[in-house]
Design a protein around this nucleic acid. Sequence first.
DNA 1: TATTAAGTTGACAGATCAGTAAACCTTAAT
DNA 2: ATTAAGGTTTACTGATCTGTCAACTTAATA
Lengths: 188, 188
Amino acid sequence: MSASKKIELIEKALKAFYAGGFQAVGMDRLAKETGISKTSMYKHFKTKEDLILEVLNLRDENYRSWFVRRIEALASTPVERLLAMFDALDEWFHEETYLSCMFIRASCEYPQSSNPIHKISAKHLRLLQAYVIGLAEQAGVKNPGDLARQLMLLNEGAIVLAHIQGPDDVARNAKETAQILINHALSQ
Amino acid sequence: MSASKKIELIEKALKAFYAGGFQAVGMDRLAKETGISKTSMYKHFKTKEDLILEVLNLRDENYRSWFVRRIEALASTPVERLLAMFDALDEWFHEETYLSCMFIRASCEYPQSSNPIHKISAKHLRLLQAYVIGLAEQAGVKNPGDLARQLMLLNEGAIVLAHIQGPDDVARNAKETAQILINHALSQ
DNA sequence: TATTAAGTTGACAGATCAGTAAACCTTAAT
DNA sequence: ATTAAGGTTTACTGATCTGTCAACTTAATA
């Protein structure tokens, strides 16, 4: 399979799995929706699970890249950036296709922590948290690790609530909550 | 099907679906694991989805009942109870079988908000939030709704992080974060 | 132009899926 | 002892699942 065809497959698979679910979308349906034959798919992916893993890797890279760039576009200082996290989330929540975070979805469909699909979800969260710790350090708070963990709680909670209850107000509430926590962290 | 057999089926189905996933666990496997024949199951449940809905209803009742009783056992005053939410969560997170919240799991496997399974997840969250608003009101904060939403963000965030990253420290971090938010709410 | 590489099509194997049915068994009630 | 109710066993239908294969088509390359 040519490299460009492979990327095309992964991108299309990402959309299909996100919209329909990893288990609900089978390889026959995936072939129909992507326009790529099963034989081609199995030329480059040993199994369906291998494809899912590549899909999650691509999603991780794309999401974190977007997230960082979006935050940097929305705010200039580290403190403002910590808050801008939630502005970025708000944009994402209000996308018509929003259906929670692909990694939460993956870890729910494959709940055992030993599962490679689940492990990628854990890695994704570690990388996100590392970024937030970085912002918290730049913001000059006394305990950047603590603040980062607090904001991660809000981040993940907002993602879930926006999906289950609808996107309105969730990110705004999370941002207001973050403001309180950041103010508190700065006053230590 | 006798009423007691039906409850037994729902309870055993709850365990099987929680451990393995709603879609991954089929009706044949469910029959093997519950010791109840498929013919019996279909005498009382028109479809697999009907069974899942009953499972979620039972889980909702059981969980909220346990949650309220556990919090009341752990703390006496409304403020302490708001914090004790996270002590209760901590106990749950450290159960060996812990695999996130069944409603987050359900909404991830059935992500479309029009799906009845997804709707039950939304209802569960509304009921939980109503309870927390009640505690916040009793605690005498100026904006109980705001505080309740903040604590729900922590609640859902903690549930997800405990599942994906492991249970250690998650509920404790959430409790410390809640303390900050409660103190802030009380000082308004 | 011939050859090679990459991809498609349609069929297949073996398994599992949700749901149904007939025949049978067990238990409870009369 | 008989009957009714409730449940089980086994097989079934039609569909879908993952993954593979042979034959074919299209594109790229020498």
